[in-house]
Design a protein around this nucleic acid. Structure first.
Lengths: 197, 197
DNA sequence: ATCTTTGTTAACCAAACGGTTAAACCATAC
DNA sequence: GTATGGTTTAACCGTTTGGTTAACAAAGAT
């Protein structure tokens, strides 16, 4: 593993745990097992290091989502596929959702600026398809954007608010993980149950 | 408005926008229109000021939720009532969900410690009631905790991830607000549609 | 062999930050 | 009026923080 990779991985860990403002360059250096000056040698400054980490995190999500949304499957199949593969992905990267939400909240301009440029998740084709299947009588009439938001919410929120949920519903780490495994299929069932004619 | 109130309101604004680590005592003082030393005169230090703000924010939520969960209504009625009144509340306090999630992520021990002490949201009665109505054949068989998580997710997530959602689904501020108004009833409809026999 | 480039470090620096101090202010009581 | 005690401020302080410097090391290139 190159020094740059060591720094990048360490930065990802620290940024995701502490956020941009809370992260310390020294802590990242320690986590990477190198000298603090190396951070600046490799990544110029804190802002650029953060942007590298954030962009990487975010750009891991987009292609995966777009692939599903743009495929040839039916809406029901897409919902099943999306919830399943998104949850599988986030189980492996559990800090990602709250990290993205946090920095989006603290620094909306920065995030939105590259949301337009980069290969962002684009739900437009799915929205059109939902309207089509409503017209065909396959799906009950429902505002497509509300449906999309329902799916996103049920899929992402448990990970974004993991600590709070574990506290309120009284779940151990194991129980939480079991619930998330179950959600890979249960979310799609709930949604489809609700909208199928 | 007393000086203490001015500080508290200013602190709430700055903490919710920047988080604990990103907030600056000077900025809070400026926002409150007072001298920085007054902060320490009134609230001792940053940590205690933050705890005052956070506790206040969190304790606004709990009683409202418990009141609904512990009432005599049916599960369907409770779902309708909860989504409606929770969204109404959060529209007035839009920064609250992402603020709570952020600090929960950065400082789980602190948050969890008072989640046990304070009048926390307790969904236990609702969970039992769901099981009962499933046994009675009113509701389709479904793990009660999953149902609860679905409701929480659909209700809270759009506010927690507002910036991202506006960016991905391409919504103006007005459109977003209109969608949230609609969700006051549409979430309950979706859920009930899905679980009623 | 020596020069040049790249990688790495310890020591250092200026600015920003949370927090303190001591003096001023101001109402109320005597 | 002036003594008292809570309130408010400007100036200050020690530490932390992001970032720099200059020296050193390793590895090719000539």
């Amino acid at each position: 593993m190159t020094t740059e990779e060591k720094i990048f991985n360490a930065a990802r860990i620290v940024f995701q745990k502490k956020g941009f403002a809370g992260a310390r360059m020294q802590e990242i250096a320690d986590e990477a097992g190198i000298n603090k000056a190396m951070l600046h040698y490799c990544f110029k400054n804190k802002q650029l290091l953060f942007e590298a980490v954030f962009m990487n995190a975010f750009s891991q999500l987009a292609p995966q989502i777009n692939e599903i949304f743009n495929s040839e499957a039916t809406v029901f199949e897409k919902i099943k596929k999306f919830t399943n593969s998104y949850i599988s992905f986030v189980i492996v990267n559990p800090y990602l959702p709250s990290f993205v939400i946090q920095e989006m909240n603290n620094n909306p301009e920065f995030v939105l600026s590259f949301l337009n440029h980069k290969n962002r998740p684009d739900p437009t084709p799915l929205l059109a398809q939902i309207e089509k299947e409503i017209a065909e009588g396959i799906i009950k009439p429902i505002p497509p954007k509300q449906l999309l938001l329902d799916i996103f919410s049920m899929t992402v929120f448990p990970f974004a608010a993991k600590t709070m949920i574990k506290g309120i519903i009284q779940l151990s780490e194991t129980e939480f993980n079991e619930m998330m495994e179950e959600r890979k299929t249960s979310i799609a069932e709930t949604i489809i149950n609700s909208i199928k004619k």
